[in-house]
Write a protein that binds this DNA or RNA. Structure first.
Lengths: 112, 112
DNA sequence: AACATCCGTCGATGGATGTCGACGTCTCCA
DNA sequence: TGGAGACGTCGACATCCATCGACGGATGTT
C-alpha cells in the first residue's frame, strides 16, 4: 500500500494538476507547449514538475528530435490513487455504484 | 474549482492517509484511538492532521462527553478528488482510442 | 562549422509544513 | 470541589519543496 504515496504526492501540487489537465485536453504536448498553457511559472519549474510526474508513473515521455512529447499514463499511479479513494469511499457509503457509473463532465476538469 | 485542491493537499500526507485508512476500517474513532492505531507520531500531530482533514471536508466530528469521534465524510472533498481522477483517466482513454482508431465512427460518439 | 532551439540538471533561496512540548479548556467522577 | 482524562491551540524548530537563473548536452538549421 505504499505505491499510492507517489501518486498523491505528485497530485498535491497545483501546477502539476494543471499540467495533467492540459495533457488530458490535448493528449500530447511538448514542454514548451505545457509551459505556455500552464502559465505563471517558468520552463525550469515545469521541467522539474514533469520529472516528478515521470518518476511517479503518471506521465509518459516520447522523444522526437529535440522535442519531448508528454502524455498521461492512466495505467500507472493514477489508477492506484483512484483505487485507494474507491476503497476509502466504500467504507462509508454504498453510493459507489453511482459514483463509478456517473460520466464526468468536461467542466469539472478545470483545476486550480 | 478550488475544492479539489484542498482534497489533494490533505491526501498528500502519509499520516493523514493512514488516518483515513483507520477510519475506513473502524468507521468511527476517537483521537486517542487514532493515535494508537497510526503510531510513530504523537497526539499533537494527529490533532493537527485532523484539523486539516476537518477543514478540507474529508472527515466529520461528533462530540460525546470528553471524546470526539471522527469518521469519513465521503460526500465531500474525497468525492471531488475521485471525480477528478476519473476525468483524467477518461481523457487518457479517449486519447488512446482517438490515436489508435484510423476512422472514428459517428455512431460511437461519447458516453456522456 | 557555427548558431539556434529544446530540454534537463544543479545550486541557491524563500516559503510552506510536519512535529513536538507546554498550556488551556472542557468534561467526568469521587 | 478537586483531580484526572480527552483534545485543541500556540510557539518553536527542522525539514521539505517549489521556484528560478545559469549552464550543458543533444538536435536541427543555415
Amino acid at each position: 500500500m505504499e505505491s499510492e504515496n507517489l501518486a498523491f504526492d505528485a497530485l498535491s501540487d497545483r501546477v502539476r494538476r494543471r499540467i495533467l489537465s492540459a495533457l488530458g485536453d490535448e493528449g500530447e504536448l511538448t514542454v514548451t507547449d505545457i509551459t505556455d498553457r500552464v502559465g505563471a511559472v517558468g520552463r525550469t519549474t515545469i521541467s522539474s514538475h514533469l520529472r516528478v510526474l515521470r518518476t511517479s508513473g503518471i506521465v509518459r515521455e516520447r522523444r522526437v528530435g529535440r522535442n519531448r512529447y508528454y502524455s498521461l499514463d492512466t495505467d500507472g499511479a493514477v489508477r492506484d490513487a483512484f483505487t485507494y479513494l474507491q476503497s476509502i469511499m466504500r467504507a462509508g457509503v454504498d453510493d459507489l455504484q453511482q459514483a463509478t457509473s456517473a460520466a464526468p463532465r468536461e467542466s469539472d476538469r478545470g483545476v486550480g
